[in-house]
Design a protein around this nucleic acid. Sequence first.
DNA 1: ACGGATTTGTTCGTATGTATA
DNA 2: CTATACATACGAACAAATCCG
Lengths: 242, 242
Amino acid sequence: MYSEDFQKSRYLIIMDNIKDRIEKGDFNPGERLPSEPELAKQFKVSRSTIREALRALEQENIVTKKHGIGTFVKAKPLYTSGIEELFSVTDLILRGGHTPGTRLIFSEYKTANAEEKEIFNLKDDEKILLVKRIRTSNQEPLVYCIDKIPAHLLPEGCTLDRESIFNFLEDKAEVKIDCATTNIETINGLPEISENLKCDVKTPLLVLKQSHFDEKTRLVLYSINYFRSNNFSFNVFRKRLK
Amino acid sequence: MYSEDFQKSRYLIIMDNIKDRIEKGDFNPGERLPSEPELAKQFKVSRSTIREALRALEQENIVTKKHGIGTFVKAKPLYTSGIEELFSVTDLILRGGHTPGTRLIFSEYKTANAEEKEIFNLKDDEKILLVKRIRTSNQEPLVYCIDKIPAHLLPEGCTLDRESIFNFLEDKAEVKIDCATTNIETINGLPEISENLKCDVKTPLLVLKQSHFDEKTRLVLYSINYFRSNNFSFNVFRKRLK
DNA sequence: ACGGATTTGTTCGTATGTATA
DNA sequence: CTATACATACGAACAAATCCG
């Protein structure tokens, strides 16, 4: 009952096992793994289960399969887990080993304008919550965030002044953010924003405009994040199709 | 013999069929698809084959599955084709419906320095080809590219002055670029680069530093691209894990 | 709160197809 | 041509999540 991988599915256990063996150097980068029937024998499971495990490993970019040849360990542990994985700014800072903080600039309910009604698919007179905050990493300002959320998704009168919006939406509003489309661009510093970020107007800013969707692909959060570009950059893992 | 999807696997055919029906409005965004056993009956295949098709559709972000509930059509065809798909600058321009061009600034073989030997895993005295080019879109400069390739991957004495490096490596050097890790940041304009891009030094530049790997995860191309940020931005599709 | 029906998730075993060496 | 390896497909059984009466 209190065991951790109690009733974890076999393919997940096998997956972890293979990961560990790669980590340990049992299987080395570039090397071929034992064939599927071979692994099936070793783990005493059917080949289907092995295939499931290998498929998952391939999806995590840890191995590649080649038809008629074999399954190979990818070189560098390419889990750069870059920007293609969606996480909140809070998580971003935590993963960097720093302490996240929030400074509220502005929080107000307002009637949605035409564009907002369009993107959130709202009826007349519906309101949205507009929040402007500075997110800090170890007390230092890192990013200026503007967030917009339809009011009907939120409990009455909350202002989102402290918490991670992701966590708040999940815990208190039962909205699970599933994915986002992000546009990345860069602009020159802007007076209000640069001042709040304590950086020079001459320092360019990295701008992420993000439309966040829940599992039903409803747009639930639109945010614009201005990052101090002198202490920030993003990684993306890009894969060729075909 | 001459039919196009002759011997295409069944799950791919089913996948296309379901895609078409979503396209046509047969299945609408947010709606539940027929259950797996139901689809199996319709297509006269086993449930496993249906699951394979649905899995592929899920991977393309066209449907989502929920345990114990069903499989649902995602809303907007969330154009996946952002920066997470790796393509050459040439393709990038072509996809925008413009005409790509190249202006050679510099092309020379040089002995790899310590850092380059490290990243490319080279022995002493090995050389790399260093190329600096301006890529143009409809004759207008768009991006300043610095590319580094180990000499041993290339035929003797080529300078890569005209072609797409991706195409050249595939056609002439038998090197297939498979994936890349990309770092995105922004910097202030630099004298040499801004001048070549015909933009003001005050215009910030979007910088993509990319390590390109082949199928064996060998680093085969390292490139730094400086984009004129005033006419460029990227999209990324970000997915939440778990 | 319980139970049964429905739906997806996991696993098995087997057979056949296709790519590569 | 043959052996090996991965890919696709079938059908069956049971598990786990969800829903509804």
